[in-house]
Design a protein around this nucleic acid. Sequence first.
RNA 1: CGAGUAAGCCAGACAGUCGCGUGCGUCAUAUGCCGAAAGGCGACGUAUGAGGAAAGUCCGAGCUCCAUAGGGCAAGGAUAACGGGUAACGCCCGCCGAAGGCGACUUCAGGAAAAGUGCAACAGAGAGAUACCGCCGAACAUAUCUGUUCGGUAAGGGUGGAAAGGCGAGGUAAGAGCUCACCGGUCGGUAGGAGACUAUGCGACCCUGUAAACUCUAUCCGGAGCAACACCGCAUAGGAGAAUGGAGACCGAUGCAAAUCGGUCGAAAAGGUCGGCCCGGCUGUUCUCGGGAAGGUGGCUGGAGCCUUGUGGCAACGCAAGGCGUAGAUAGAUGGCUGUCAAAUACAGAACUCGGCUUACAGACUUGCUCGCAUC
RNA 2: GGAGAUGUAUCGAAGAGGUCAUAACGAGCUCGACUCGAAAUCGAGUUGUCCGGAGACGGGCACGUGGGUUCGAAUCCCACCAUCUCCG
Length: 115
Amino acid sequence: MQHTIAIKENHVFRRLYRQGKNAVSPLLAVYCKKNRLGCTRLGITVSTKVGKAVTRNLVRRRIKEAYRIHEGEFLSSYDVVIVSRVRCAKADFWEIEASLLQLMQQLKLLENKDT
RNA sequence: CGAGUAAGCCAGACAGUCGCGUGCGUCAUAUGCCGAAAGGCGACGUAUGAGGAAAGUCCGAGCUCCAUAGGGCAAGGAUAACGGGUAACGCCCGCCGAAGGCGACUUCAGGAAAAGUGCAACAGAGAGAUACCGCCGAACAUAUCUGUUCGGUAAGGGUGGAAAGGCGAGGUAAGAGCUCACCGGUCGGUAGGAGACUAUGCGACCCUGUAAACUCUAUCCGGAGCAACACCGCAUAGGAGAAUGGAGACCGAUGCAAAUCGGUCGAAAAGGUCGGCCCGGCUGUUCUCGGGAAGGUGGCUGGAGCCUUGUGGCAACGCAAGGCGUAGAUAGAUGGCUGUCAAAUACAGAACUCGGCUUACAGACUUGCUCGCAUC
RNA sequence: GGAGAUGUAUCGAAGAGGUCAUAACGAGCUCGACUCGAAAUCGAGUUGUCCGGAGACGGGCACGUGGGUUCGAAUCCCACCAUCUCCG
């Protein structure tokens, strides 16, 4: 991912959960907040409630892939945290991708290509 | 052909395309960028990139540190037929015994109860100790039935998981391994075996169960763990040293005294800090050493390794020769899409590394053996 | 990744091999007393699940789950499951 770095610190996650705008679907929850770094930071959370290690890895990779494909369409200079919910373990890639795009639309992070 | 049993093996593959970690090569740059510092940072090509259990963390080791980890004793813990294998093991192989199965075969914490101690609730007269009923004998009482007292007795009754090894005969007042025959058990002898053990009318017998009760016997064990640990590097507190400051107290000198000088002790008060306040706790400053949070680098993958052939061994496994050596992340690399194969679906993700055990598991294949049926 | 601890009524929590755990004790819940009414207090009861029964009640299974040792396990031993804590 060319324009995105990872969020590693726990306090950044907690600040986003408390202060960021959020949008929720049955599969995912997204928190976002504008930052001043000039690039986008991404964090992905998959809790142990979703499944065991193999399942969690698969979900995380699918979310990451869905984000990577559409990275150019999102506005930059934001902190974004994507949290997977329990039903995400049974969803396929297409459902996750559609859900992510829908939530990003709700948060108005998509670049408007029509105008 | 069916049913069963034991063992082995695989764990989607291939092609295209976008994307990720690491190694190597080439090119590029840079007295550039990020960072306090240590240290890190690009593009292209190429190679390579999770398991049979990577899991549970139940055993055994390597490795590192702690305090010498070498020996002895004690405590505590572990293991337990016997013989072998192994670096080691509580693992594996073989074998013995016991239990189950028609059988192939499977299962077993399987030492010692004759060193000692404890426990065996309830029930029952009695739980290694016993006389409740009953049976028998004697004495006494009574007209008789019978009763009382003393003694003998474990055959019968009932209780219990278990009642003195079982059963039959003799024997006796009644009974009793009291005696005998048969059948077990333990110990000793003899024979066989490397041994556990097996056989045995050769002898003896203190013959309930429990040691996953204490214990005894034999063998073994120091503790903690890669978030160990080493190096780089940085803040606070606590620690050591040096310098300096200091209300005051004490000692000495000079002096009538005040005071001055020198030495020793020294943060009580005041002030500061924690705290909303009181109470209460802490205590000067500077420098050096040392310590070492967050961070970085190493530890980090070649090891008791795997495969093939030969050879020794019933086997586990050993020996020799040849070949193969290919994850190493650090918020953590394997994913998405398309096509083909009948279908792609089980359990499941390396985190210092090995040897085992245990648990989870869709489906495919191979081999040995057993039983039943049919045919030749 | 590593190291530990704990599982017993609805909740907390005793029980350490023996009469059905009187599932002690405390909280909770239900009913009653007190009160105009409530709270507090006092007294009594219920405690899980399955089967049988009209009911009163009776019986089986239950101490996280499954095995083992024992005449007999909540308790002793082994394996597994769940929950919680600690280590930078």
